[in-house]
Design a protein around this nucleic acid. Structure first.
Lengths: 245, 245
DNA sequence: GAGAAAAGAATGTTCTAACAAATGACATTC
DNA sequence: GAATGTCATTTGTTAGAACATTCTTTTCTC
């Protein structure tokens, strides 16, 4: 039974259970604790760190809900298999390309303030005649065209500039304006490309298109963005991790 | 301030916090409580139902984590915007078709016990030479061919029968054998169909294919299934809800 | 020796009890 | 009238305790 060293700072404004969670989480993700290892039990941990059982329990519960630990009543707690770890995140194509070590470039094809689009407005939970900021961009990874992205942005971000959008991630710009995207509903599908899309993405005849439409919202439910994206099928796939329970 | 009627059965084996969660959850999802409505506060709820505050708190915490409620310190708890609700679930195509009100039919194209497939075995975390059960099926929604599904199943489910697989959901059969799929990693993409796929799915020339490969695992990390599925692009899309935080 | 019963260990549920921190409303002061 | 301060309300954090449930291990009995 490996005892992970943990230091608790009671004068910190960070809740004790969160301090504990972070240090245990790090111990697992750095491999200090390996999948299958038995985990120190609640009582022992509470006693060793001079914390109450509910506090320790809460930290462990967080680790379990994140998929890092598995609890079995009567048996004990063990570090979950590697394949369980990992979780969905709200990422953008910009981040995805960067992470692959390629250099993302953006070409702004269209930038229209105050465009009405009933479908997009409704998806964002706004009145159908709300004027939205419309952006259409072509994304390249290095020299390879990867995606055509159309986005509709609600009025509260209307001060976005074209150069800002050309420079980097749309989400970075929205976050800089106080948006805190918390939930996104994505619909992923495939279809035949239009002539324009075929040209922009340099598709051969018969090549399919991978599509994703996304509605993103803040924690309080206010709309952040509606997007309609098309990807080259040989340049992009979606990884989704689904949890039961 | 609307008081939701709740009945708590203390003799039930169902935990009190879960009884409470279910009834409150139902009140929100049936629209009895509407988005933006103020929610009865913890103390009042605890007092009214003769429950302790931690118990009430746990039920509310569950509702918050499911996105049905929003809590703000010093202010109170309110019912979250509609768009936040819903969460990822581990579903199968069989369930999806049923839910749309269509009748799913299955045609077993291939059923091979003890087939070696290093790629599938490795994805399942098994030795490359592990003999796997291979199943290939054509799924129809009513009369319309919808998907071609290839699945590789680990040896512990080797007693699956062809008729069982033909009858219903593969997941139902696996669950009946004690599998409790908890996590699945899915990769969604698009590609051009092969000649065989074009024929099976009655695709026109140039029609694209929506693809999904999935690795599913039990709560303890043991492999449940590796699948490689192809869908008619006009019959199916993937809905994914992504959460930040 | 095999099976049943008991003991032990671990997590699961529930309660009572304080105190802390954030917020909004109201009152006070300048 | 505007800024400031106070207070009640509400959620957030932490503690300590008791008992229930489940699974493993050991012991006892036949």
């Amino acid at each position: 039974m490996l005892q992970i060293p943990v230091t608790i700072d009671r004068s910190s404004p960070v809740p004790l259970y969160h301090q504990l969670y972070e240090q245990l989480s790090a111990a697992i993700e750095t491999g200090r604790l390996k999948p299958g290892d038995a985990f120190e039990n609640e009582l022992a941990l509470a006693d060793r760190l001079q914390l109450s059982r509910p506090t320790v329990r809460r930290a462990i519960a967080e680790l379990v809900s994140r998929g890092l630990l598995v609890r079995r009543r009567g048996v004990g707690t063990t570090v979950a298999s590697q394949v369980i770890h990992r979780r969905d995140e709200l990422t953008s194509l910009f981040d995805d390309i960067s992470r692959r070590g390629q250099k993302p470039t953006t070409e702004v094809l269209d930038f229209v303030p105050d465009l009405e689009n009933p479908v997009a407005a409704e998806a964002l939970g706004l009145p159908a005649d709300t004027p939205l900021l419309f952006i259409e961009r072509l994304r390249l990874a290095g020299d390879v065209p990867t995606a055509v992205m159309q986005n509709w942005i609600p009025p509260r971000f209307a001060d976005l500039t074209e150069s800002e959008v050309a420079k980097g991630s749309l989400y970075a710009a929205l976050r800089a304006r106080g948006a805190r995207p918390a939930v996104a509903h994505q619909t992923i599908g495939a279809r035949r490309p239009s002539a324009k899309e075929r040209r922009l993405l340099a598709l051969a005849a018969g090549d399919p298109l991978l599509t994703m439409s996304r509605r993103a919202y803040d924690g309080d439910g206010s709309a952040v963005e509606f997007g309609d994206h098309c990807y080259r099928y040989d340049q992009y796939t979606f990884d989704v991790t689904v949890h039961e329970s």
